[in-house]
Write a protein that binds this DNA or RNA. Sequence first.
DNA 1: CATGAATGAGCGTTCATTCAT
DNA 2: AATGAATGAACGCTCATTCAT
Lengths: 194, 194, 194, 194
Amino acid sequence: MSEALPKTCDDPRERVLRAAERAFVASGFHGARMAQIAKEAKMSPGHIYHYFESKEQIIAEMIRAHYEEKKVTVERYREAGDQVVDMMIDNLKDSVAAKTDPFWSTLMLEIAAEATRNPEVASSIRNMDAELKGRVISYLQDSVRKDNLESRLEIFVALMQGIGMRNILNPSLDKEAVTLILRDVIEVLFRQKD
Amino acid sequence: MSEALPKTCDDPRERVLRAAERAFVASGFHGARMAQIAKEAKMSPGHIYHYFESKEQIIAEMIRAHYEEKKVTVERYREAGDQVVDMMIDNLKDSVAAKTDPFWSTLMLEIAAEATRNPEVASSIRNMDAELKGRVISYLQDSVRKDNLESRLEIFVALMQGIGMRNILNPSLDKEAVTLILRDVIEVLFRQKD
Amino acid sequence: MSEALPKTCDDPRERVLRAAERAFVASGFHGARMAQIAKEAKMSPGHIYHYFESKEQIIAEMIRAHYEEKKVTVERYREAGDQVVDMMIDNLKDSVAAKTDPFWSTLMLEIAAEATRNPEVASSIRNMDAELKGRVISYLQDSVRKDNLESRLEIFVALMQGIGMRNILNPSLDKEAVTLILRDVIEVLFRQKD
Amino acid sequence: MSEALPKTCDDPRERVLRAAERAFVASGFHGARMAQIAKEAKMSPGHIYHYFESKEQIIAEMIRAHYEEKKVTVERYREAGDQVVDMMIDNLKDSVAAKTDPFWSTLMLEIAAEATRNPEVASSIRNMDAELKGRVISYLQDSVRKDNLESRLEIFVALMQGIGMRNILNPSLDKEAVTLILRDVIEVLFRQKD
DNA sequence: CATGAATGAGCGTTCATTCAT
DNA sequence: AATGAATGAACGCTCATTCAT
């Protein structure tokens, strides 16, 4: 009954991670100050180091948590059976909204930028990315056209993440029009020719 | 006749900008050290401040220079006349190679990330981006399908930049396969129906 | 009857003092961490402050305890009667071993170094040192040469502590040879000319 | 004519070393603050790092400089020929004064204490100490008793450094009386039996 | 009596920027 | 125009000490 809520604001590690996320979005991994993270986590700077060894570790764990969330998100493809292309199209509006949320697109940008500089982070990201992509491919396998599936998926992911980046450079991006056009792109990328 | 060569290695401002570009790609805007930029520009750190007020200004001007280069690049769309979709397809391999060049994709990432943090830079980028897009639209106008052209262009740009980001997260991206599939996407995005 | 055993491992103050001693030898007064002392004393860091006001106080009391032990040690001179020079010579091997024990020589070094920095500690050490020396002089008085006895004793103590320091700077010090030579030095310092 | 004075206050490295020496004597290696050293060296904290990589390096170089000075000091034994024991006795007053200078005895204490904790420093000190001792032995070789010479020298050095330590614990040490008694100790340690 | 989570001042060090030359 | 020595504020992080429980 009184089950501890998992991952609430009461878990101090989680509080730090959430605070760091906000600080990273606001100032970038390098620009974010431990003092700011501490303040947002309602914790003294020193106490953060009871939960994390370093700022680097906070970055690494936040990236990992980000991928864990993505894992959950892609599980819905598993359940879509052979309706997966229809599902992608049905969910398009939400997907575009998610990718154009400035919070998430900014974080994605930071993560990619960190991968270009920190080899340890890069390797970890690439492993997680590959695992995620492998899962998605196994879920799509039977219901979409199979030729060059991996590359088609790469293009789809590139497109969705690219939309996030475009929304940063052009926040007046017409999400509705984009959503409509994306339907055709998804059809051409994935629909099996009966 | 003895016109000063514009943008050669002899122009010290240009030298700083090129050096900064390399340093930013290697270490990010925050990670790059003025000392490193000075060394690469073969100039003392102090002397950089004769040409630029601050590191921020170097970032801003480097981004501007980046857009100036892009302006030159898009001019070829102007010259393509009504063959523009064919030209996009013919150039696809080069375009993919350009977007997956780690140097440029890293720089693009830094620029986008900076836009999320520095409002002045963000505003300047958005102006330049809008101008660039306006030009491209005017060049495409007569030779591609006109419905929702701006959004179709956004999607195309998102896709190309997204491929750059994907290449960072997954450097074993199959560029050849991607190039092939992109042909179909371009057809569906831009080809006028008879 | 049920007298509390003094100075056993059950006395928590004593446990802290012993733990501090080990930590100070391992890391120095400054390098030793309260957390380490607490761990060695099998006590929480916070609880140490029920027994001691500060780290400084632990240092001061540990030094005092060190002198109390020395007091016990010098009592044997009292019991030697007029055989004291012979006893010094007989005990030489043990004395050298004691002074070259890294534990005690390190502690001696820390104590002397602390005396150069902390005036309160310095004053307390000087009092205790003077008292100790006074006792030894009274024990030696009747059985050794009396001219300049205090200075002869100073030289003897300097020599023994100096050997401890030499053993730190040159751990391959030949203790056996040193012991042999010291016999002659003691003879010249203390033996009464019949 | 206008020869640069070697090691004057104009050499900034030397200024840092001298400032560090004073700060180390006043507060110990650990207690001394870079800000304090900077202030005493009339230099900003940041600028110290143009000359030294770290506080550790300053400590290491100061110790080395200390040994270089000692090397110069022991050279006079070389020139004493077979009068070396007489010279030791003649110089005794100065030697005692040098060893009881609180500045130098405090520094010696810090150095020995550092050797018990920092293995790199310890190894360097031991090498320098061994070299120094080797030199002295070669200078004494022909004019003092040869049995166990190395250990006799160790005892002499221990005695002199021990006097420095005693002077810290008992600053009212009677240097004159000590000097007188030391003559006999030197005779017994080194004088050749005709 | 006892805990250990929590604090926050202060450390060694870095680096954008300045300025005497 | 050009240098590079010099600055000092600000960083990530540590640890003696406190205090709610």
